[in-house]
Nucleic acid binder design. Structure first.
Length: 297
DNA sequence: TATTATCGCGGAT
DNA sequence: ATCCGCGATAATA
């Protein structure tokens, strides 16, 4: 707890704050095969603290968590059979859009519709705590349009961060929209999204996909990847009928505006390498590790 | 035209 | 085993 106060920029003392430092240390020093004592020391905590933290945060012991973010485990996420996307469909869940465990119903808003009729469209935004740091949530009257993260310091040695930058990043996606700070409008979304106990099929989460036709098709495909599984850029490309477009898929995945809800973190390279994440690879690891804990129980 | 959060192939460590 | 460099490839600004 005392060490966390030094990182007062965001959610001081939060679980993710420490998790982030553990992950950052491991990614930079994995070659040295650091012991749990060394890792704990670098994160400013005792091994016992670390143990309790991971049990509380994701339900896994530190050892299990570390194993969950290795390349070997990432390959397992991909699944032995043909494609995770196909097996998801075989399970026989009824409608499109409720395959995600968050029970999302989605509608698409094409750029044309967005530019032509978008004059009156206004977006509400707010900042809310989450298991992965402070989240920026953007909504329309029709549903969730954006979810991003406020960077909280270092990622891969690069200094980034702040609410202003998080908001600017989101506004860059739809520069012509009207933005209104309205935490009361966005708070219910935060409560729903980050509490697995609140995930329910009866009241699906409404999301609005704003992008090109190609991007929307990719994002819709991502919604079919179950919690605790992963797929590859090439698999997504096959799924939308363009087997050779894996690179273009990577670009579209990277532009996903609704982090976590549209699970772009569950797309990894064919080798099992995590390859990239708009909000930092450290966060991608953290989310995948957290999800491993959710499915383990 | 020049960018990619890709992929698979050789050839060199 | 692992890692680079390369070309093919599809969608954007």
């Amino acid at each position: 707890m005392p060490a966390a106060a030094e990182f007062a920029s965001v959610a001081p003392g939060s679980d993710y704050d420490t998790v982030r430092r553990v992950l950052a240390y491991i990614t930079e020093n994995w070659r040295a095969q650091p012991t749990i004592e060394t890792i704990a020391g670098a994160a400013g905590a005792t091994p016992t603290d670390i143990h309790h933290l991971f049990r509380r945060w994701c339900g896994l012991t530190p050892k299990a968590f570390l194993q969950a973010i290795t390349l070997y485990h990432a390959k397992n996420l991909l699944g032995a059979s043909a494609s995770v996307l196909d097996t998801a469909l075989e399970v026989g869940l009824s409608g499109p859009g409720r395959l995600h465990d968050l029970f999302v119903t989605h509608e698409a808003m094409s750029p044309g519709e967005w530019k032509a009729g978008g004059g009156g469209l206004s977006l509400s935004y707010g900042f809310h705590p989450s298991p992965f740091g402070e989240a920026l949530i953007v909504t329309t009257p029709r549903g969730l349009a954006g979810l991003g993260w406020v960077s909280d310091g270092l990622d891969g040695g690069k200094v980034v961060g702040g609410r202003a930058e998080a908001l600017a990043d989101m506004m860059r996606r739809w520069p012509h929209a009207q933005y209104r700070f309205d935490p009361q409008a966005t708070a219910p979304y935060a409560a729903r999204i980050f509490d697995p106990k609140a995930w329910s099929a009866e009241t699906p989460l409404r999301v609005v996909l704003i992008g090109t036709d190609f991007e929307v098709r990719v994002w819709q495909t991502l919604l079919k990847i179950p919690v605790g599984r992963a797929t590859t850029y090439g698999d997504v490309a096959c799924h939308i009928g363009k087997p050779s477009a894996s690179r273009a898929v990577g670009m579209a995945v990277g532009k996903n505006p609704i982090s976590f809800v549209v699970p772009c973190h569950r797309v990894i390279g064919k080798s099992g390498a995590l390859t990239g994440y708009h909000w930092g690879l450290t966060r991608k690891r953290a989310i995948l590790g957290w999800e491993a804990g959710q499915t383990a129980g």
